[in-house]
Amino acid sequence: MKVLVVGLNWVGDVIMSFSAIANAAIGSTEKVDVITRPHLAPLYKLHPGIGNICAMDTKRPFWRLLPEILRLRRRAYDIIVVFPHSFRSALHAFLCGGSMRAGYASEGRSALLTLALPIPARFEKQHESSLHVHLVAAAGLPDITAPLPTVKLPSDLRTATLQHFGLKSDEDYAVIAPGAAFGEAKRWPAERFAEVALRIHHLLGWRVVVTGSNNETEIALTARVAAALPGLALDLGGRTSLDELIRILACSRLLLANDSGTMHLGALLKVPLVVPVGSTDMARTGPLAELAALVRTDSCRKVCRQSVCPQGTNDCMRSISVDAMMDAIKELLARARTSARPEGICCHG
């Protein structure tokens, strides 16, 4: 049985689909193939159940994608699983053929699918990953609730990346990711990230690496954090590819991140993870990690899921103190000492 997955378009969403892809690989006679946008290909390469990765810019008009689509069509897939809910993703699946094309009924695309499932109401209160597992199971593939797969990174590539950015393979450092693509309601103040980083350095002697994407907002955020830590912080805002970010995270001792793709990467790489939580419904989209601490207050009565605070105050994030974050960090690191990370992920063993 041959299976093709039409992949999701954001780092965090991709990682939340990894357990479902693992189930599909178990039910297939060979590894699962994936359609993805080029910038996400390095992420899919981490999954041990994925075989061929068709990296194509799915935003382009479909007729410009026909050479790649026809090549996939010749593979004669038994099942094509469409994780995104967009009409365009179902159209790509339709053009690829497949005996079964399974996806959720949305955007008037049911005619393009052979199995168009309604989104069950109960999933409104369940984790996003369970929605993908449900879809894969409906297509006749295994229905297993499994943790994120264990990934392995070549040690020579990890070491080369660290050296490129002036880090040593045996160096202890924490990573801070002060950005969040969805909006300011998900961002803890940059100055408080810097204060936590300073306390970590005084407590443990660790260096600090600040990371962020290459958009102007995140570059400015990482620069603010690094500027508050002269001589202690390495500012990598806008300077890393996804591949490089993965290797830097893999060798870190701790990750402090807002709700973001970097947060989910930390979960995948089994990095001890501390997250200040504001507008996010973590029951639905939280990190799939055992070594994670979610820090929030009850200043807001309900999760709004908005990118900008409806009250204009951002109190749900501003009410999280540096002391609360430090308490969470100390407790998490104590737990991490008794929970070894899998071999092949990190530099420290």
Score class of each variant (00 low, 15 high):
S99A: 14
E244N: 05
R64V: 08
R187T: 02
R74H: 13
E331S: 13
G179C: 00
A336V: 13
L221M: 06
A292T: 11
V295K: 01
R37C: 07
E68F: 11
L153Q: 08
C347S: 14
Y173M: 10
L115W: 03
L91K: 06
C54G: 05
V175W: 03
R207L: 02
A24L: 07
L113E: 05
I329A: 01
M1G: 13
L236Q: 02
R284L: 03
W10D: 02
P38C: 07
L198V: 06
L254M: 05
I53S: 09
F87H: 14
S321E: 01
F62K: 10
E171F: 12
P48I: 09
A116T: 04
E191N: 09
E124R: 15
G349Q: 15
A226P: 09
N258C: 08
V274C: 02
G261C: 10
H47T: 03
P142D: 11
C347T: 11
V14L: 03
N215M: 08
N23G: 12
P276T: 04
L113P: 06
R37Q: 14
D78Q: 14
Y173N: 11
D156Y: 12
R253C: 09
A233E: 08
V196Q: 03
V3A: 12
A41I: 06
S28M: 12
A180H: 00
Y173C: 11
V274I: 10
C96V: 04
A180K: 00
D33M: 08
D327Q: 08
R337C: 08
T297C: 01
G312S: 06
R301F: 05
L8A: 05
G266S: 04
Q311L: 15
V303S: 00
K31R: 15
L117T: 01
A24H: 07
S19K: 03
N314T: 06
V32H: 13
L229R: 04
L91A: 13
G103S: 10
V34M: 13
K2T: 15
D33E: 13
L43E: 07
D323A: 08
K270M: 06
P142V: 09
C300K: 00
H264G: 07
R37A: 14
A111C: 09
C309D: 00
L40W: 01
K59A: 14
A336F: 12
S130I: 08
W206G: 02
Q306K: 01
G12S: 04
L265I: 11
S169W: 11
V3I: 09
V208Q: 06
L245D: 05
N215P: 05
L204M: 12
L232M: 13
A190H: 03
L245I: 09
K45L: 09
K31E: 09
L65A: 10
I144K: 15
W206Y: 09
A233C: 11
G286V: 03
R60C: 10
G278R: 00
D13G: 01
A267E: 01
D235V: 05
G231W: 07
T262Y: 04
H132I: 07
M100T: 15
P118E: 15
D243R: 12
D281K: 01
L245Q: 11
I246M: 12
A25G: 12
S110R: 14
E191T: 11
L8H: 02
C346S: 15
E30W: 07
A185N: 01
L135A: 10
R88K: 15
L70V: 12
G27I: 12
D143I: 04
A90E: 08
V303Y: 01
D243I: 03
C347K: 07
A267I: 02
P48C: 06
A334G: 09
W10F: 11
G205T: 02
K270I: 04
